[in-house]
Design a protein around this nucleic acid. Structure first.
Lengths: 210, 210
DNA sequence: TTTAATATGTAACCAATGTTACTGAACACC
DNA sequence: GGTGTTCAGTAACATTGGTTACATATTAAA
């Protein structure tokens, strides 16, 4: 584990902290689609992403979802942070977007290290800031963009975290992430294709115009 | 200042910290409508709310606004926190919703106290968590509610922070906060009135059904 | 009091999105 | 190869919200 740790967090944390993480953290690999955290759950450990990507979702009262943002390597989930602290339940769902490697830290350590390591403190505050910024970006998309713009942005974001300009997804699953219906997505995808921005195939979409 | 300070933050902070705040903080009273922070600004001090309420707004690329949430006494602005830290520009606008009293803390102190006072550290983390929760609530409203539901929720929230079931506002200003048009608001307000939920008057609206 | 500015009401129309229903194509499994 | 299932395309229609235009009411200013 120490190798992955140094590679991804070595520039952030001092050696003493890296060693502590190595001692108390558990290394975990999960497949695409694996649900890491569910809404309403108490959190017992916080994840440090080593590789892959995780998508963070919100749910409405009918159980329909909405994608908030993706987190990638070098990130942690700030939602988890606050859940840990106050023994609160998770407000969001976290699902592996790609096969993902992570290090799980027991929550007690989180606050212990806050006082002990300045670099940990900075990391946590920086994470909060980053997640806040991403929530604002999510709000911008939802409140200010039309569905066709949101869709194209979604496709580009998804291509980005998958490091691939061909994304494997069905129209129905896009509809779930964007909290709309499959028919709407099919319609808008077709018009994006007609504009020459994407190429549609069964179960995959190629982005042409970045 | 020390009186207001103890009254509002005495249960949170130890005496040593209260004294430091008293020494380096500046007490400030601002009228309704006063703009405390603008988008793109660098932040030189962070506000602790003593009384009143502040509304936090986001702006689209056409310059139209969207209300994110209100903050009240005992709160601080977590956006400010992150702006301070990284010397980043503000992502939001903060405007006094009512006449407001606040204590301004120079930003250097913020991170100094993070290491020095555990209670300050907890306060900052708790603030981040609260603001995050409020952003999620904003997303819920925007993404999951129809405009008439958003409007009624807005009216109730506004009545709440003003401690008054009669709110003084024009249809146009509601439209600005909800990022829609005056005509839409007038239409929906009229139907809320017909449902017996509110009573409309020129420049003010009375909430009947809480 | 007259005039101007602001606030609200409302109709008519348009655009965006959501819904229902049905189609055929592609694929998976037997 | 046949059959059932999943996925995508599309038409027709409903609903919500946005836009334009204009009328009237209230308040402020001259």
């Amino acid at each position: 584990m120490i190798t992955e740790l140094k590679e991804n967090y070595g520039y952030l944390f001092e050696d003493a902290l890296l060693n502590e993480i190595n001692n108390v953290g558990t290394y975990k690999e999960v497949p695409e689609g694996f649900q890491l955290i569910d809404i309403g759950e108490y959190i017992k450990s916080m994840p440090l992403l080593v590789s892959g990507a995780v998508k963070i979702l919100r749910e409405d009262d009918k159980g329909d979802e909405l994608l908030l943002y993706f987190i990638e390597r070098g990130d942690t989930c700030a939602m988890t942070l606050s859940c840990c602290m106050g023994q609160k339940r998770s407000e969001i769902r976290a699902v592996a977007e790609t096969p993902t490697k992570l290090i799980m830290i027991p929550v007690e350590k989180m606050s212990e290290w806050m006082g002990k390591y300045k670099s940990w403190q900075n990391f946590i505050l920086q994470s909060y800031h980053d997640r806040m910024t991403e929530l604002l970006e999510a709000i911008d998309s939802i409140a200010f963009l039309k569905m066709d713009e949101r869709l194209f942005k979604y496709l580009k974001d998804k291509a980005m975290v998958n490091h691939n300009d061909v994304i494997n997804v069905t129209h129905q699953n896009i509809a779930f992430d964007l909290h709309t219906s499959r028919v709407v997505i099919s319609r808008l995808l077709k018009s994006l294709e007609n504009e020459g921005k994407i190429k549609l195939n069964r179960n995959n979409i190629k982005i042409l115009d970045f």
